[in-house]
Design a protein around this nucleic acid. Sequence first.
DNA 1: ATTGACAACCAAAACGTTTTGGTAAAAAAT
DNA 2: ATTTTTTACCAAAACGTTTTGGTTGTCAAT
Lengths: 342, 342
Amino acid sequence: MDIKTLSKKLKLSITTVSRALGGYSDVSEKTRLKVKKLAKKYNYSPNPYASRLASGKSKTVGFVLPLYGLNANTLNQTSIFDFLAGTTNKIYSENIQFFMTFVNNAEEEKRAYEKLIFIEKVDKIILHNLKKKDSRINFLLKHNIKFVTWGRVQGLKNYSWVDLDNEYSTNLIMNYLFERNHDKIAYINIVENYNFAFQRKKGYLSALKKNKISYNKKYYATVKTEGPEHSAKLIKNMLIANPEISAIVCSTEYTAVGAIKACNDLNKKIGKDISIITFDGPVVESLTSPALTAVNHPRKELGLKAIEMLINMDGKNYKHQSYLAKPKIIDRGSVHKIIKAS
Amino acid sequence: MDIKTLSKKLKLSITTVSRALGGYSDVSEKTRLKVKKLAKKYNYSPNPYASRLASGKSKTVGFVLPLYGLNANTLNQTSIFDFLAGTTNKIYSENIQFFMTFVNNAEEEKRAYEKLIFIEKVDKIILHNLKKKDSRINFLLKHNIKFVTWGRVQGLKNYSWVDLDNEYSTNLIMNYLFERNHDKIAYINIVENYNFAFQRKKGYLSALKKNKISYNKKYYATVKTEGPEHSAKLIKNMLIANPEISAIVCSTEYTAVGAIKACNDLNKKIGKDISIITFDGPVVESLTSPALTAVNHPRKELGLKAIEMLINMDGKNYKHQSYLAKPKIIDRGSVHKIIKAS
DNA sequence: ATTGACAACCAAAACGTTTTGGTAAAAAAT
DNA sequence: ATTTTTTACCAAAACGTTTTGGTTGTCAAT
């Protein structure tokens, strides 16, 4: 069924049928109803390729998912799934096409964006895993592609983003530990060129400062994108060298898994001899034993907000928006309270 | 840059430029080279929407990813990622578009397939998570959509598939246990309407039979799609009621995680007091402690084979193909040998 | 009665390709 | 020398929409 035969059956012009379905006001409500009814009956829906060609709009959102670097870790991939799951409803109701590409290295990633924009001609993109300075943003701005980022960059303002308030989150974690009388607190971050890692470090430092605890660089370490074993070894060494450490804060799930291993190896009972606290995700909330206390990262919500922003961007006088999620701490018993000697 | 201006610059007709790039033989090699060179210079690539409209072919592969049921488990999602990662290279080199949809329930899933086929007009689909009888297959056959399945159904033959040899895998696991003198072997499966679960049960039963061990239904249990806690409870009860069980075979990663918890709770040391063996995946291979001995499931390889089959389907006299992966056992120390009293 | 505004419709152009059905010139076969 | 085949090219149609720039008829305002 195409619009031509449909319009013949209706004894209307193609134009009128198109505009009736498109919701234009130069069609009487009576005819619009008639058109809609018959369209439904014949299960008509415009050929997407013809429509995209004619209108010059693709209603397509591009998303590049790197399977290397930070995301080589399965756990990060699942986080992204959560985010994407948050977008599904809107994608349905708004009839948006989601265009996803997997890439295995930086070269492929660069080509993937070029392909999305110049070849597939998507008109919108969701960006994630932002670096402190991220060349993709200028690239997209330059080519006039609408986009929303999950995460922010340093400096720039003229774009739309959703993000977890990373500095606040880390403050929250630190205060939670302070309240339980911890003051020898280790922080295992990932490399700081990812902006969220940078922001979390800031949160760690500002919380220490506010609480008048001086920063001890022996308690701070970063890992690259290696698996949990690497974190486990690093944390183990840190704990051996600094046995006074009573709590470990982890920036990602896989470092948290490493922390658990390290503590197990050293026979330190989590939630009793030592505390671990981290950022939420599917693994630490149910798969590790014990499950870990963490700040919740509302990924689905962020996904929803992101897609909503993208949709609103079609409006004439759109202004850049942002959404900053403030998390809470979910207590799962992996943090113990230190009894003060009085 | 479009084909019109490109052809003008070349002083050739649009037809010739199109056919030069399309690899047709009615263009001299000399002009073809000239055309390709200039196309590259101006970074020309045909507008996909115009091209799909004109040719009636979309070069688009549809994939529906359920986030409910079996896949509500994060761990299953990551398995699917592995599979998809295997397809990326081909998708690049063949310029295929990958069309992915997330769905949250059965109703959405059904609509997703309809949308892919009737609205988005994808011409190829990859199917996964097959049931014993799976209505999607007849649906696709009926509408003449090319597809490849990851997994098989019972009965039907006229379709192309890739799959792990589940029965063989389970035989392998069981023999591995027999060689280590286990004969009280529990099997924790997932519900048997998933065909792979059914096949694995067959493998369990045939291995027992070949080894002249009678099937004890107290040692066999199925879980639905609940999280690992549910399996943990179930396995714990089974072990309490049947303390003679020396080895547990698990069908999925999340039941394996449950098994670990159950053993920990009962203070049975894995790889010493009791054995756990399962099917491979990102979690059991590195995130659990201990990591679990498992048969490897070459998901990437299966993804590659699947996309290759889809590409070959364009050939004129295509015959249905299939690929059955035979796995090996990866020893990670979670299976112990029972010393026979002699 | 005339003008202006508005409602409701439509024909034709445009979008950028691929494909069909040719033609002219060169080469090969008779 | 003529006919046939092959090579290399091309104009125009087709794909199924959206959008542009109308027209016609009705009604209210003058």
